[in-house]
Amino acid sequence: MPEQQKTIEIEVLRYNPETDQVPYAQVFAVPFTDDMSVLQGVQYIKDYLDGSLSFRWSCRMAICGSCGMMINGEPSLSCQTFLRDYYPERVRVEALAHFPIERDLVINMEGFIEKLESIQPYIIPKEARTLAQGEYLQTPAQLNAYEQFSSCINCLLCYAACPQFGLNKDFVGPAALTLLHRYNMDSRDGGQAERMQLVNAEEGVFNCTAVGYCSEVCPKHVDPANAVNLNKTNSAMDYFLRFLAPKGGTK
């Protein structure tokens, strides 16, 4: 079967903090078939060429958010990016940009987790309801108001794409701000006033210079740029109202 004899070169950025001063590139030749994802290529390397290569992955179907990498310089999910789109050229994979590298293709994402925890990403009920009272009613239109923003898989591609985050690691950033917006827009939620303090703070939305690359790379069409910009409007409104109402006036 001639198909199976084709190979593709994968160049991987390697780094092991225990032995390497700086990251370096290493090239592997991997058997190529038409339906292989970049993740499968990297897995082949680990299984048969170099067991010490480290990377995160799990679902293989673009939903767990583990497998983000820079692929030829673009933030991508490696399970959803296919080698056929590069073949016969060499393809280059590196850890996601703007994050500290822990090892090889594994980044440190603690900072993001802290941001996510900080925005109160849960329903703060507008009105309490017992289980016996059943579900909150929410029309398809009300669902639609936030559904897109609830589809974020925390893959962090948008952070790797965001020039502002590149400059300022404290910027809350696209995905966390989108999640904040998601809860604010939920008809069941009444926590907007609390959350908006974070948006208005120094590291909130006004850091964003509306480049929009985050939305372009988002594999789930969450459109974080849109969420951030909607919050700029909300935030400006808040800022304005503060002068009129002494208590902060978010309502």
């Binding site: 289980l131 579900e135 929410q138 669902l143």
Partner: peptide, 22 residues
Amino acid sequence: SAELTQLEHWGCPWSRTADGQV
């Protein structure tokens, strides 16, 4: 159903009927 309703209260975006029920 009680557990699924609990999840609804916690914010799960269940798909809805036109009148807003799950």
